[in-house]
Structure formats: structure tokens, C-alpha cells
């Protein structure tokens, strides 16, 4: 049961994030909610990489457990995903900055010139 705790955390974070992004009204809060989903995804991949009885995938530090090194793929994936997440968050925030300059508000209900 305790081993599944990370997955419950992931589910909770995804739900909070999606809830915040759908029902949020402030653009900055929406960006925060999106990065919450992103954090949950990273946590998910890292948690999946855990193997019972495995050792860290660094040969010099694995000691006598070198035969039980886990695959370093999830770490590599997460690092990539973090970098990509940083880029998308930066782009979202810069777009929000431009939107504030143009519309003078951060309320998503006011920023709807394109419709119909």
C-alpha cells in the first residue's frame, strides 16, 4: 500500500492541476496549474523507474550490487521532460505577459476576441 503512495500523489496532482486549469480565471494561476500537471507527470515517470532491490545506475557507486542496477531510462526521460516543461512554462508566461500588455487584464473571460 505504501509503495503505491507516489501514484496516489500523481493522481491527486493531475486532478488538482486539470481542475485549476479548467476552472481557473487568472492566467497566471492557469500556468501554475499546468506546471502542476507537468510535475505530476515527472513524478510518475520517476516512480515507475523504481525497482525493488535494484541499485542506482552508476557503476562506481553501485558497490556489490552492480548486477542489479536499474535501467536509467526514466531518469533520462524525466530530465528531458523537465527541460521541455521549463521551456513551455516560460513560453506560456511570456505569452501571458504580452496578453496583459494588450488586454490590460489577466482574466481569461476578458481575453476572447477570437470566437465564433
Amino acid at each position: 500500500m505504501i509503495g503505491n503512495l507516489p501514484y496516489f500523489a500523481v493522481a491527486a496532482l493531475v486532478i488538482f492541476g486539470l481542475f485549476g486549469a479548467i476552472f481557473g480565471r487568472n492566467l497566471v494561476k492557469i500556468a501554475v496549474a499546468v506546471s502542476l500537471v507537468e510535475a505530476a507527470t515527472n513524478l510518475f515517470i520517476i516512480a515507475l523507474g523504481y525497482r525493488n532491490g535494484g541499485s542506482i545506475p552508476v557503476f562506481t557507486q553501485a558497490g556489490g550490487y552492480a548486477d542489479y542496477m536499474v535501467l536509467p531510462t526514466p531518469q533520462a526521460l524525466t530530465l528531458t521532460a523537465i527541460v521541455i516543461g521549463m521551456a513551455t512554462t516560460a513560453l506560456l508566461l511570456s505569452l501571458i505577459m504580452l496578453l496583459y500588455r494588450h488586454y490590460g487584464t489577466l482574466d481569461v473571460r476578458e481575453i476572447r476576441r477570437l470566437r465564433g
Partner: peptide, 25 residues
Amino acid sequence: EAVEASFKYMLLSTVGALMVLVAVA
């Protein structure tokens, strides 16, 4: 309008891409 369109696209595609990542996981 261009910034607005870009923001909408970005919001949707970021969340969509994260869903793809969850599936990959």
C-alpha cells in the same frame, strides 16, 4: 489576436503533450 490565439494553442497543446507523456510512462 495573434498572442491570444497562440496562448490558447499553447495551453491546449501543453496539456495534450503531457497526456502523451503519461501514456508513454
